[in-house]
Nucleic acid binder design. Structure first.
Lengths: 222, 222
DNA sequence: CCTACCGATCGGTAGG
DNA sequence: CCTACCGATCGGTAGG
């Protein structure tokens, strides 16, 4: 059944309204992310957020039921992106090291993109309510399980060299997790470059053989 | 001039009083450290602390002028211990790599001992007032400067292998700095063991040649 | 060193 | 009568 012109126009208006709604929601999230990042959850008041936005509190409360939900939304978005980086299809035909290469690249990239909200989970897990905390802990456990599995398989293949598996995985996670203290997008090393450099350091912790082509000055040294 | 018996006794009483004073102060710091670690600065109320201590608020305020001072005392103790680990005398005769070995061991050990308050500086720098923030930033800068110098000298000596110096130093700092999220003293790996394992990972990031004697299964491999 | 409080500021919501 | 808001103020609680 064909839609009438009136119906189409109505639907279009609806889409625009939804777009505006989402835009306003996103702007709130942007401001909140920045403030929570700089001042922490408890150190940021709703008054701070609405002041920065140039709106009133009910404006924000129309889009989010509470300060806590605002924080949890940001936390989930970022942590989900970072912690699913090491996930691969069961029937992915590649070797463990090939998958590790791609996984660590995705992990580094996700942490660069989400470096502000990416560590809310670690820094302020006390703020998160039990359900989200459980979901995130499950996600984190799976991330480390998958990473550990790739590490051990790669070592069996003779492609990796490290001592304690769990500790190696934690060291890899630590570098990404602590990045928020020093990485800035407008710093000396740009985001794209940083992803590659981080990936290399993470691979080094796993004791991966660095491809000759990727070595600095390879072939021209002495 | 000899002290009278009365003077000696007075001095002794004074010493005991000071000892008790310090003990009470330490107990407050212990409880506060634990709570700040678990709940963050703003998430911890003075009521939480006094309840845990079984005292009243004025009791704590007799020993510390403010909640902020309590936090800053803990922060300074821990960060100072961790960030001076890479300091050596100007006329220390050892090679850069020898110093790096010891420095990273000290750094790992300090971070293990102070793992609770060691990251207050990074996690909640917004809480610290300007003077302490400056002192700590200076300390951190010197730590990284000294670390970078050792790294570059070691590389020149042909003993180390890494790409970007600053990023390598930051990666080393990151592992220690993020440790608080996963290290627990009663975990599978004990404190002494953990220091050695951490040190090895940090040396690996710097691209140090691992002494054959330290390699797992060295000499018996194949 | 406690009981009893204070000025201020918090997250969240009322009516229109 | 709906939505998307505003000015004003709520009940509770923070540090001191």
């Amino acid at each position: 059944m064909k839609k009438s012109i009136a119906q189409r126009a109505q639907q279009e208006r609806q889409t625009i309204v939804e777009g505006v709604h989402d835009q306003k929601r996103e702007r709130i999230l942007d401001v909140a992310r920045e403030l929570f990042f700089r001042q922490g959850f408890a150190g940021t008041t709703m008054a701070d957020i609405v002041e920065q936005l140039g709106v009133t509190k009910p404006y924000v409360y129309y889009y989010f039921p509470s300060k806590n939900d605002l924080f949890e939304t940001l936390c989930w978005q970022a942590s989900h992106a970072c912690l699913t980086a090491m996930h691969f299809d069961k029937d992915d035909p590649r070797t463990a090291v090939e998958k590790l290469h791609e996984g660590l690249h995705r992990f580094a990239a996700a942490n660069i993109v989400h470096f502000k909200a990416g560590t809310f989970f670690y820094r302020e897990s006390g703020v998160l309510r039990a359900p989200l905390q459980r979901k995130l802990r499950t996600l984190a456990r799976r991330f480390y399980d998958e990473l550990c599995e790739l590490l051990e398989q790669g070592r069996q293949d003779g492609e990796l060299d490290f001592d304690n598996t769990k500790l190696t995985a934690l060291a890899i996670g630590s570098i990404a997790g602590f990045m928020y203290t020093w990485y800035r997008p407008d710093g000396r090393i740009g985001p794209e470059d940083m992803v590659g450099q981080l990936q290399n350091i993470l691979l080094k912790i796993a004791g991966a053989k660095v491809p000759a082509a990727k070595r600095k000055g390879a072939g021209t040294k002495n």
